[in-house]
């Protein structure tokens, strides 16, 4: 992460974002009900939810930081640590296991040098395991960012990775 980027992630939430979160809280009726949406909004902007931003969101929703963190840390898709530019969600559930997900994971490790939970040194990819993606008729399956891929095979997997810089 460059210094400028680091500074941005450590800076207070901009007024626009704070307004968006306030609007979510308004729309939700009960402020705390906007928690997941607000955390995701922050994550969309910064890639993850830093301690500082978590505290700010909690204040906007009239929750304690600990309360909001108990929600944030519960979810598989709220990231409380920095991630790479692209997040690979590789399905590790049983239909994909039957269809070769273990081999897909091994190939990703070979190409990118990372195990599940790790980020490449160049910050290009974070690899995370994900529970059944509901794409079982095209197993093995994965997502990269918001895009879904199925019927993975050795050549196809390499070609997909090429599309993410």
């Amino acid at each position: 992460m460059s210094t400028a980027e680091q500074d941005r992630k450590e800076a207070p939430l901009e007024a626009g974002l704070r307004q968006e979160i306030a609007a979510l809280a308004q729309h939700a009726g009960h402020k705390r009900a906007a928690g997941t949406d607000a955390l995701k909004l922050v994550q969309k902007h910064f890639g993850y939810v830093s301690d500082r931003h978590l505290s700010e969101v909690a204040a906007l929703l009239e929750m304690t930081p600990a309360e909001l963190d108990s929600v944030a840390t519960f979810y598989n898709l709220i990231f409380r640590r920095p991630v790479g530019r692209h997040v690979i969600l590789l399905c590790d559930s049983v239909a994909c296991w039957v269809m070769g997900a273990t081999a897909a994971r091994a190939q990703l490790h070979e190409r990118l040098g990372i195990h599940p939970g790790e980020t490449t040194a160049d910050g290009r990819f974070t690899l995370l395991p994900i529970v059944c993606l509901g794409h079982c008729d095209h197993a093995p399956a994965m997502m990269i960012d918001e895009n879904q891929y199925g019927d993975l095979d050795p050549a196809g997997l390499d070609a997909i990775l090429e599309g993410y810089k």
Partner: peptide
Amino acid sequence: DEMEPCSF
């Protein structure tokens, strides 16, 4: 919230 393994 379809997350039951092998359900799609």
